[in-house]
Write a protein that binds this DNA or RNA. Structure first.
Lengths: 214, 214
DNA sequence: CAAAGAAATGAACCCAAATTCATATCATGT
DNA sequence: ACATGATATGAATTTGGGTTCATTTCTTTG
């Protein structure tokens, strides 16, 4: 025998793997999942196409892994903010604001992470983190309701709506192109306010009227 | 000369075209844009694959046409509700409710119509109708603000958020599977309430506090 | 009914992009 | 330096599905 997988090789291997994952992130943030090809990723990582397949069994699993890496980090950040001291209202608006700020920094990537359909494995991985975000918001809403800060409501539905509002208002197809930072800030505040009021406002009398007449 | 395109043939042609468009609707409502193939559509329409190409120049244009047909109808329905007599609050909640009710009747189709990415032509067509829905909601919000019913706000952003909340809360990936009608009704009311309160609630003092501290 | 012109058919073709694999290169231990 | 085993390479292959087109079937008119 004349070979043994040494420490150094192990590191190089891990490093190459990491570079490929980073390359996915970069390519996806430029062209989205739709336009991302394995050859592009290899190019961006500085390896040959075939090398990608020595590290990952398929495009779907590679991309899913890359998404999971990023998404978990984002979930952690938002969850940390949501777990701070303070009223439920301030925690919710801070969490929403942080999510929003980070998303608009890299809109294309954010949209790909949260919504853009792709290979089945990617969709499955995304669903996990989508739910994780929703769970963070849902917990804060429940806390607020328990503390009497927010009215009784379907917390799961409200959390899903918050995600939806953020997605569509900030980074989805309806979001305005915002090359300008001050507009972006204002937009984030509008959306944060929308979400906070939605979960915190006491039901309007007019709502009941509408319900009884329709 | 020994042939002329007669009335009857013209009708048969139009009929076949219509059947193909209907078949797209059916196939998409079953497997979404992702899984919809031209061969399936042809099969569902009871014609050969090649026939599809005698009526439409490409898959993208066929699917875009089919989407436009449906979406315009939905926009008209929602717009009609939004144009009724009544307070802005009642018009908005009725419009949201109608959108929601119709969407849950055919969730897969609704999601495909409003959000699922597909061929470039389809995306382009969808954007038009997405905006059309947003415009309907935006107009009601503006009316409400002008009448002093709603507080001042970024109406365009709020309208986008309403679309997003509906999409995610009702028909998107986070929406609960709801085989049961009563749950569906309750969900629709939760989401309608969420949207109405978001646009109609007076800003909370706590919001200002949060803004000044962050 | 025969001829002429359209429309329908579906198997063959084409293309883009994922995946493979024979070959080349690199690491290790004697 | 050499032998051995592992990793990297990228051109060639495979594949899924949209599109084409030579052939068949249908309609109309003389």
């Amino acid at each position: 025998m004349a070979y043994r997988r040494t420490e150094r090789v192990e590191e190089q291997l891990q490093d190459k793997r990491d570079r490929i994952l980073q390359a996915v992130r970069q390519v996806v943030s430029e062209v989205g999942f739709r336009g991302a090809q394995v050859a592009m990723v290899a190019e961006a990582a500085g390896v040959a196409t075939g090398t990608v397949y020595r590290h990952f069994p398929s495009k779907g699993e590679l991309f899913a892994k890359a998404l999971a890496l990023n998404a978990q980090h984002e979930v952690d950040v938002v969850a940390a903010v949501a777990a701070c001291e303070g009223s439920a209202a301030s925690r919710l608006s801070d969490a929403v604001r942080v999510f929003a700020r980070r998303a608009v920094q890299a809109r294309r990537l954010a949209w790909a992470m949260i919504a853009e359909p792709a290979e089945a494995e990617v969709d499955a991985a995304r669903l996990v983190y989508r739910r994780a975000f929703a769970d963070v918001f849902e917990k804060v809403i429940r806390d607020g309701t328990a503390a009497g800060e927010f009215p009784a409501q379907n917390a799961a539905a409200s959390a899903a709506c918050v995600i939806g509002a953020l997605n569509e208002g900030l980074i989805g197809p309806l979001a305005p192109e915002a090359p300008d930072l001050s507009n972006t800030r204002a937009l984030i505040e509008s959306i944060t306010a929308f979400c906070l009021q939605a979960v915190s406002a006491k039901p309007y009398p007019s709502l009941r009227l509408v319900e009884s007449t329709s």
